[in-house]
Amino acid sequence: MLQAEDHDIAQKLKVLEESNQQLIEKLKTVERERTEYLQNVSHQLVAPLNAIKWHIENINERRIGIERAQKVLKSIYSQATIAVHLAKNFNLMSNLEADHALSQLKEPLRDIDLKRLLINLANDFQPLAWDQEIDIGVSDSRFDSGPSILAMRPLISQVFSNIIENAVKYSNPKTIIVIEGTYKKEDDSFAVRIRNHGIQLPEKHQEDVFARGFRTPESKRKYPAGTGFGLYIAKRIVEIHEGTITARSAEGWTVFEVTLTVKGLQGKARYVSEQDRTPHR
């Protein structure tokens, strides 16, 4: 009798030990991923800051002439813009990792003129793109002049900057990134397409590319320090706005399409629009 009980306990202990071992392995994997993520975050942030410091040293030490200094100042501005963009992403990411819903960010809803927003973002990323002789253009003829959309501006801005940054990173040199917009009257929505020519997204990864931390083997090769969070963040923000985001590649071109409804989150209880914020008398 006692022997049977001993055997039973030994069996249970063995099962416990095995599950314990699995947990240890899981924790090790999480720890490894976390270390790699932090290293990549550090790598991404240090690169523009190092460039800014060294450019300033060159100006201070008068190693470059006035004409070159003018160009370098533009580069410093561009690097600072990138650093701010990255810091915003990491802040958003830490909110997501802490499992806070994006709605807890409590951003007010604002009317956004998508064309103007995209022109500003194209200008922000153009200096980075020039390094590879890539032009970013918002198409005048292929961008409908539709109504503004009601959304959380800093978040929508981050969606498009993540897609544009991605397009710049993975475009072939001497190509063009084209941004188009279509207003669809039937469902009162705006579709923005960002087209770039470069690394292709295989059909099997068209969904995966929005998964947390996912990177295609080719993108890992070309840009090892990436975190695979930019497009994940973009998708989460678009979903919060009840829109859609897709990606596909064909004949050398990759197209990201974001569709947002014009009314957006208006009237949804948890969000407050500027119009709704009538001061109490």
């Binding site: 190092n50 060294w54 040293e57 190693r63 470059i64 580069s75 590879q132």
Partner: peptide, 17 residues
Amino acid sequence: DDEQAFLEPLADALEYE
């Protein structure tokens, strides 16, 4: 280096020398 932002200032300084 794959970062143009890293290459530029170091190249400027070395060319100056």
